[in-house]
Amino acid sequence: MENNEQTERTLTKLLIVDDNPRIRNLLRYTFSDGNYELFEAEDGKQALTAILKVKPNIVLLDVMMPGEIDGFEVCDFIKSSTLINCRVILLTAKGQKDDFQKGLDSGADIYITKPFSPSSLIEIVENIVAKQHQQN
């Protein structure tokens, strides 16, 4: 019982936002080591709902998605809200210089272009988690 509570407390809430099911699939496998509680969203609108409901620690966010809200806007929303304390990793197939700038402008913590290395992504996420723990 005590062990269980301990485990639950240390689970990091990770929200995966991507319209492509294969990418979501890949990310799911990447973070399938049991340290994470995974949530998924297929577009910006679903992402916003999930963020408010789940209050994730980290969001893995795609930029180009169908629908009215793109990744930049989701990121903007997270960073401008004082209620949400959450790191944003932008994962995007847009690799041009001004896209990168746009990502930084929207307040993303980290900007990663596809294709990406799952092990590097794990490392990045673990670093963030470690920092969050230190702050707590």
Binding site: R22, I23, N25, L26, Y29, A93, K114, P115, S117
Partner: peptide, 11 residues
């Protein structure tokens, strides 16, 4: 090209 490449590379 990046999107399918992500699956190949990542998996």
């Amino acid at each position: 090209l990046r999107t399918p490449m992500s699956s190949v590379f990542g998996f």
